[in-house]
Nucleic acid binder design. Sequence first.
DNA 1: TCTGGGGTCCTAGGACCC
DNA 2: TCTGGGGTCCTAGGACCC
Length: 426
Amino acid sequence: MPRDIFALIDCNSFYAACEKVFNPHLIDKPVGILSNNDGIIVALSPELKKLGISRGDAAFKIDKNFILKNGIHLFSSNYTLYGDMSNRVMKTLTNFSPDIEIYSIDEAFLSLQGFEHLNLTDYGRQIKKTVWQHTGLPVSVGIGPTKTLAKVANRFAKKHPFIEGIFDITDHPDKDKILRWMEVEHIWGVGRQYAKMLRSNGIENAFQLAQAPDSWVLKKMTIVGLRMVKELRGISCLDLEEDIPAKKEIVSSKSFGSPVTELNDMQEATAEYCLRAVEKLREEHQVASQITVFITTNRFKNEPQYANYATARLPLPSAYSPDFLHAAATIMKRIYRSGYNYKKSGVMISDIMHQSKAPLDFFQPCYLDDKRKIIMDCMDEINEKMGSRQLTYAACGIKKTWQMKRQALTPSYTTSWEHIPVVKAI
DNA sequence: TCTGGGGTCCTAGGACCC
DNA sequence: TCTGGGGTCCTAGGACCC
């Protein structure tokens, strides 16, 4: 069995880079992308990082004069745009290997097994160049015998401009040195808690972690941690996952643009999230029979706090929006208490199965067995063509005082005819 | 004034059954 | 005084990822 070879391709500052593609005057400018409700910075261009801004900083805390003086541009997050750009990147990557795992919106693993006769660093360079030509997005390429080492190589490539964004750690003479350079908190699979634990046990970098005894790692970090440590040693434990597994739960939740106090508003907002969740369910051709609704106040505020949730089961698995809207409204009535400033609500759909496996029932209307599916398909099609929520339910309300703030949203350049960029002859 | 949203996996412990 | 033990299923909580 030949050993595995993985490449991890990762877009640099993805959200900020997407904005720059369609706003060329932003190139070399500090750009930041905001979370929902324009609350915090979730993505930043290198130029913004250099000014001392970090992921997680509150947007309003950045001084207005500082923004003007440094030519900083902050945008609301435009997931429609980023999702579409992501598809273009992934489509390009499929030209470079038949085996691809789309790991996140801005990352993919490729298997390069069978490509060993090539100079893989050159191949990585070709990948980078092609993605740039097709999309205008810069990527980094890390190559290694395990996914975890490919991640290490990718980070090394990103942090060392002189190697131009491509690094192959396989059989590299400085491998140990690089593992020593890799601090534990940056290893894939080590988060805040584990990093703290490891450091308090004198383990500060990937090299030291790779030396730790199996039994100790197993005890402290479960089987997941042990797999990761083996991968650092060059033993591949994580396979490429090419088939996108069916979702086991679907969540839709959002913070409100401003605090909500009334039951009616809570129900409307939650109906909106519920609708989105069931839409996602239908996109995957699935049905579900369980719904959970949760609500919470703002835990950062010094005021009375309340959080609650409850679950309901549908008599039969369904993907018919009104089934879920009805259940959600009933749950909300049960868990809502007046006298609080609510910050957020959400809907989780679980107990999911493919629609072809849904049981039928002679005595009750079933999703696939009557007009319900036809109505849903029709609604989805109209909304797809005419813009989302052209056709919706009154349960979602009209005033929508709770709607999130997005004051600096860029156009949907690639997915809306109205927003498509126009080239003008001068 | 702010502090996102959407997922997965693993483990421990309780309920229940035989 | 002693009050099994093993298996399965479910849930909550904790860790991680982007």
